[in-house]
Each structure stands twice: as C-alpha cells, then as structure tokens.
Design a protein around this nucleic acid. Sequence first.
DNA 1: TTCACATTTTTGTTGCAACAAAAATGCAGC
DNA 2: GCTGCATTTTTGTTGCAACAAAAATGTGAA
Lengths: 232, 232
Amino acid sequence: MPDIPKKVPQVERAMERLGDAAYRQMKERIIRGVYRPGHKLTVRAVAQDLDVSTTPARDAINRLTSEGALVYTGPKTVVVPVLDSTALREITLTRLALEGLASEQAAQHGTPVDVEELKSLQRLINSALDEKRYAEALWHNKEFHFAIYRLSGLPHLVSIIESLWLRIGPSLHNLYPEFAEEKYGVRNHEIAMEALEERDAASLRAAMENDIRDGYRRLKRANQEKEGDCSA
Amino acid sequence: MPDIPKKVPQVERAMERLGDAAYRQMKERIIRGVYRPGHKLTVRAVAQDLDVSTTPARDAINRLTSEGALVYTGPKTVVVPVLDSTALREITLTRLALEGLASEQAAQHGTPVDVEELKSLQRLINSALDEKRYAEALWHNKEFHFAIYRLSGLPHLVSIIESLWLRIGPSLHNLYPEFAEEKYGVRNHEIAMEALEERDAASLRAAMENDIRDGYRRLKRANQEKEGDCSA
DNA sequence: TTCACATTTTTGTTGCAACAAAAATGCAGC
DNA sequence: GCTGCATTTTTGTTGCAACAAAAATGTGAA
C-alpha cells in the first residue's frame, strides 16, 4: 500500500468551476492591462493570487497560452507577450477587418434602445475621464465597443474580436501613467452613435475604424517611449 | 557560444508535453472532420484514445472548449458543435474578411519558390482527388490555403484563421461520403497561383474568396441534406 | 570585474484518488 | 406502451505529491 488514504478537501460552493473562474479573472486582468508586458507567470503564483490550487491555475494559464494571450519564452516560462511595433501593426490590421465587419453588421440591427445604452456607456466613459479614473474609462470603452459588436448578431465574430483585445491588452499597461491628455476617442464614439441611429453602415464602420487607428497611434507612441526608456 | 560544454542538451528536439500533444491531435482530428458534429467527448475516453492519463486529456478538452472548437451542451457534457446554417454563414463571413486580408498581404510577399510549393501541393490535391482519397485531398487543401496565408507574414492572423477552420472542420464530416463530384476548387486554386505569380493582390483575394464561397455552398448543401435525413 | 561551472531552488507536468453531480438505468404503477 | 421516481453508473473537477527539468544562485578563478 503505497498511499495512505488522503485527507480529502471538500469544496462546498462551486457554481462556477474554479478553472473557469481563474481563466476569466486572468483574462480580465490581461485585457485591462494589469500585467506589464514581459511579466512572468508561474502556476503557483497565480494559484496563490486567485486563492485556488495549482490545477485550476495551470488550467487557466494553458488556455490563455493556446489562445495566444500568453506566450512561452522558454520551456518553463510563460510571460505576458511584449508586442513589438510589427505585431502591434498586424493586430491592428486584423482588428480593422474584423471590427469593421462587426460594425457594418451592427448598423443593420441596432435599435433606439441600443443607442440609449451606448449613450449611457459613453457618459460613464466621460465621467471616468473627467475624474481621471483611467482604468475605469478604458474598461467602459471596451464595453462600448463590444456593445456595438454584439449588435452584429455574430457571436463567433465577437469572440474572435475578444481574443484580439486580449492580445493588445497588455500594451495598455504602458498607457496608464500619462494616459488621455485629450479625451479618448470621444468624437469617434459620438459619430458612431449617430451612424447607428441612422443605420448608416459605412459611417459606423468608418467611425469605429477611426477609433481603432486612433488607439493604435496612441499605443505605438506609448510603446516607443517605453522602449526608449529601457534602452536609455 | 562557440564552445560546447560537456553538458550539452543532447535531446535538442522538443520534448512535447503530453497535454500539448493531446491538444494538437484533437485539433487535427477536428479540422479533418473525423468527429461527427454532436459527438460527445469525455475525459476518460479521450485519455484512453490518446493513451494518456486524464490530466492531459482534460487539458486538451478545456483548451479546445475555450477556443470555441468544442462546446458545452450541459454542465458535464462537451460535444463537437453542430453548426446550423446561421452559424455556417457567420463563420464564412468572418473567413472572407480574414482570409481575404491574408491573401492580399500574401500577394505582396510571394516568391517564385512559394509558387512552386503551391503547385506541388496542388498536384497532391489532384492526385488524391483522382484516386478518391478525399480525406487526404481535404488535408492538402488546408495546407494549400495556409501556405498562402503564411506568406502574409502575419502569424497572429494565421492563427486566428486556424481557429476558424477548427470551427468548420466538423461540418466536413457530412461531406465525406459523396464528396467532390466535381474537382474541389481546382480552378480557383489555379487562378490563385497565377495571381500570386503576378503579385496581383486583388485577384488573389478574389480567387480565395471564391474558393471559400464555393466551399460554403457545398457545405450548406451537405448540411441541409443531413438535416433532411434526420428529420425524415 | 567577468566568466564558467556546480549546487540549490523553483517550477511545470503528470497520474491518481475521492467527491459531487449529472446522466443512465431500472422499475413500479398506470 | 408510457411516465415518474429512485438507484446505480458515469463523469468532471480538484488537490496533492513525486519527479524531472529549468532557472536562479553561489563560488572560485582569471
């Protein structure tokens, strides 16, 4: 008898599986730019962070890795990916295609109720910006975009777009300190809402594409400055 | 390091983790349409199938699930998703955007060597079709497409396209019996190769889009017939 | 200092057992 | 035949420990 009966831990609550919860929380943190690009993630550290055992933590890390949200830099080291300017450009290109498509489709399904919801989200963005709660502004910005994309009625597309946001999320980290000297994309959002109201697919797509390009420039600049800091 | 120390990592070849191997094999089977849509997957069955313990099997299933390649139909049941005509259309729409983009970019980077490789792949497709080895033809067809997409130099984009193929893969299962009365997309492939040779981005994109649309029609028809069988 | 090497620590992986819950099965009663 | 309910079987989840391999650290020499 190699093993003595082990003490079995009982988990009373488990509506959501621990692995899923860990995955979801990690995902949210990555999209929010909580982790600095290059940050190393270890199974045990994540487990301790989220207060679960190693199994769900490893589960979450593996899932995020096979989605490209995390990457291997060595046989035993998973890190939050560092996007160079090439990768940033590539993802932006893909975002333009996908989020442009979603916007176009959304224009055909939007209702006045949806526009109201967007306006409400925009108010949240504005007040967060006014009070310099940039992380919150960024989060509401994400919700604004996805509220539109969901209107497309194309759930597969939306989930793929989400995986793209997962990849650029870490770059937002560099944005935090000196974020948003000017209002972040407010004008584009206003145009987008107007276009949605008028069911103008081309305009909505253009507005969203503009917003994406705008964010891209901001991100590129922030990353360049960051690289400058490191090499200097 | 020009000098080689005595403790050299002899086994330089990547020791693949069991979880990764399981994931990769499952992925390949799904893309190839080995599993019938609706097929239920259990941890223990997969483990026995791939001759690993439950941990790597569960790992693979979880990863595929969070990528959308498998879906939950109950709290404890993961199945190969059944695509209805709406979902099929949505994925095709997304494929057109993404694979169209990849094709355009590929046209700008293709070399004569690449064209030769494509021709060689096309020969494999043709001979497989001639000898009615349809599964093989389908596989080479996938390689043909991705050989082009990889020329785009956009690895993120390619990996996202792969996740889309993962979602339509199961539908290919319905295609197997009466597959390919006519030659599958041969004409489109020929045009694509010609366009690549001439670095004609628009033509290459058009050819690939045509191929996708062609496959879509075929798939739609096969699925309808399948549904007809079930309800009859 | 810097480099190379040996030692220690950290870390991912894997198999397994026990549990809880879902799915399958049996069975009685109609 | 079918339906509803209780029982049995199947199944996913989770924590854990042992192991191997990689990373970190220490050490000493030039």
